[in-house]
Structure formats: structure tokens, C-alpha cells
Design a protein around this nucleic acid. Structure first.
Lengths: 90, 90
DNA sequence: GCTCCGTGCTACAAAATTTGTAACATGGAA
DNA sequence: TTCCATGTTACAAATTTTGTAGCACGGAGC
């Protein structure tokens, strides 16, 4: 489960999420969107780039493999919406 | 994305994974399976129980909502297998 | 009764990670 | 050359995690 280990690090899923649907963000825009300090963002981006999930090319964007990841995340995101509304009801 | 924040904490996804398919594990068995020290496991279990993902009932098991989560995780797990074999090829 | 296990869980100091803020260096535009 | 936005690094403080040890409880067997 090496991939889950990587994605379980602080901010990793959030970064991928912010780059969904072909979005291209600068380092600073990504920092603001993902609410991460630059040190953590930089560490995480290095890991995600080494894992071929994120590509740096005139800003940061998802690699093809990263796009596959987003697709695989949709059910989880839908679950988390259900979870949020269920938790809100209490 | 409060749910993703919770699931992004160290060991959280791993704990859910170890409880897949109706498995019921003791605290110590879960500790060994998820490879977590007791302090971290305890913190994480408290969070997962508060989130109604894990239930403590003669051992630890997934709640119904936790089972939904596992179902939503399958595409991600399949992606991570693909990722692992692709990464191994380099 | 008492002892022996296995249980969930806590204590605590050391190690690792994250945070927040500041700044650096580079490159393009004005 | 001045300005501005970029990616990135520095560094100390705060937080989290780790590893190990042990506690308190409950049941089984004697």
C-alpha cells in the first residue's frame, strides 16, 4: 500500500484535489488553495512528482496518472459528501 | 473536505483497510496489522469512532458507514495497484 | 481466594514532521 | 533599472508520531 502511504501524508490528497479537472496552478496559488505552508507544499510536490502524479510544466498540473487518480477518487469524494451531510445532521 | 482531512491522517486509511470485509480485530491485533504504535492507534480510533466509521463492539469493526467507505475506496485501491506495478517497472 | 493471560489503554521522552514567517534568487515586464 | 510574481529555502516553534514500558480490568483455571 505504498501509494496509500504517500496519499496519506498531510495535504497530499488535498493537492491532487485542487488540481482536478485539468487545473493549472502556480506554486503560490496552490499554496493558498490547499492551505499549506511552503515547506510542506514543496516536500509534498516533490513526492508527488517523483510518483508521477503531478507534473511541473508552466505551473503545476496533474500528470496522466494523476488524472486517473482523480477518476478513482470520485467515489470517495461522493462518500465524503454523504458523510459531511450526515455528520451535520447531528 | 473534512472527511479527507481525517482520512489523510497517519494510519487512518490503513486502519479502515485492515477492517475491510467485516473483519473484527482486537486493539492489539489492529496494532500489529496496521503497524501503528498504541498511542497513534488510540488517537486514530477515537477520531474514526467519532466520525462513525469504526465501531467498538467486542473488538473493532467498521460501522455501516465505514463499509460504505470501503466500497468507495475500491477504485482507489485498484489505482494504487496499477501505480505500484508501473512504478516497479522503472 | 489467587495466579495467569489477554484485553484496552496510558505515560513519557525522543524523534520526526508540520507550521508560520521571512527571506532569497531568478526572470519578465514597464 | 525598477518592479513584481515566481519557485524555493531557512529556521525556530509547535505539533504529531514513535517506541517502549507499564497500568488496570476481566475472565479462566486452579
Amino acid at each position: 500500500m505504498a501509494a496509500l502511504d504517500l496519499l496519506g501524508r498531510r495535504g497530499a490528497l488535498r493537492i491532487v484535489w485542487e488540481l482536478r479537472e485539468g487545473r493549472v496552478l502556480t506554486f503560490r496559488a496552490l499554496q493558498a488553495a490547499a492551505e499549506l505552508p511552503p515547506g510542506t507544499l514543496n516536500t509534498r510536490l516533490a513526492e508527488l512528482r517523483a510518483a508521477d502524479i503531478v507534473a511541473a510544466d508552466a505551473g503545476y498540473r496533474l500528470s496522466p496518472r494523476g488524472s486517473d487518480l482523480i477518476a478513482a477518487l470520485w467515489p470517495l469524494l461522493r462518500w465524503s459528501e454523504d458523510w459531511a451531510s450526515a455528520m451535520g445532521d447531528r
